[in-house]
Simulated scan of single mutants.
Amino acid sequence: MKITATSGGGFAGITREHQVDTETSPAGPAIEAALAATDFFAAPDAPAGEPIGADIPRWTITVDADGRQGSISFLDDAGPASQRWRPLLDRILAA
């Protein structure tokens, strides 16, 4: 399974990208378990709209697994969507 987490936004407008192949990464099983706990492929993407603050980064997590691909996006603002996806994102970033 290949997972990409990309961020953009914030004051500096810096884009970051992290890629993980769970088949080769030692953190692969933990990331796959975190992904399964989110019901990723059944989750709707974040609602459209702009963040209230220009300093709030937006993350997009894209998963390519067994011929299925899905993406979700959320604002890293400590809101409900951020709290749902942050544990998965933290595992991806630590891999």
Score class of each variant (00 low, 15 high):
69 Q>A: 12
75 L>V: 01
25 S>Q: 08
48 A>D: 14
55 D>H: 10
81 A>V: 01
20 V>W: 05
14 I>F: 12
91 R>N: 04
68 R>C: 00
67 G>Y: 09
72 I>W: 02
39 D>E: 14
28 G>I: 10
32 E>D: 12
60 T>K: 12
72 I>F: 02
77 D>H: 03
89 L>K: 15
44 P>G: 09
74 F>E: 00
11 F>N: 09
23 E>Y: 11
37 A>E: 15
31 I>M: 03
23 E>K: 12
54 A>Q: 12
41 F>N: 06
92 I>E: 02
65 A>N: 10
68 R>T: 07
24 T>K: 10
62 T>W: 06
42 A>D: 14
26 P>C: 03
66 D>E: 14
30 A>Y: 00
67 G>V: 07
71 S>R: 12
40 F>E: 01
70 G>Y: 02
66 D>Y: 01
41 F>C: 08
48 A>R: 10
63 V>A: 00
69 Q>N: 10
39 D>F: 03
43 A>G: 03
12 A>I: 03
88 L>P: 04
73 S>Q: 10
82 S>F: 03
21 D>W: 08
44 P>I: 06
53 G>W: 14
77 D>A: 12
19 Q>F: 10
48 A>E: 14
62 T>M: 08
68 R>E: 11
2 K>G: 00
26 P>Q: 05
95 A>P: 02
12 A>S: 14
50 E>M: 11
78 A>W: 08
16 R>I: 02
86 R>G: 00
11 F>I: 11
88 L>F: 08
44 P>T: 13
46 A>F: 07
64 D>M: 06
59 W>Y: 15
42 A>K: 12
31 I>P: 00
85 W>A: 04
80 P>E: 15
64 D>P: 00
51 P>D: 13
89 L>H: 11
32 E>I: 01
90 D>Y: 05
60 T>Y: 04
48 A>Y: 07
43 A>C: 11
32 E>Q: 09
75 L>F: 15
37 A>V: 03
62 T>D: 09
60 T>L: 02
18 H>I: 06
26 P>S: 09
36 A>G: 09
1 M>Y: 07
91 R>T: 00
3 I>C: 06
79 G>I: 03
69 Q>H: 09
85 W>E: 03
92 I>N: 01
62 T>F: 06
78 A>L: 12
46 A>T: 07
76 D>T: 03
49 G>W: 11
91 R>W: 01
12 A>D: 07
93 L>A: 11
16 R>F: 14
54 A>Y: 11
43 A>I: 00
77 D>I: 03
71 S>G: 09
60 T>V: 13
21 D>H: 08
84 R>D: 02
92 I>C: 02
19 Q>S: 13
68 R>H: 11
6 T>E: 12
30 A>N: 01
58 R>T: 15
66 D>W: 01
25 S>G: 05
18 H>Q: 12
67 G>K: 08
36 A>W: 04
43 A>H: 10
39 D>I: 01
25 S>M: 09
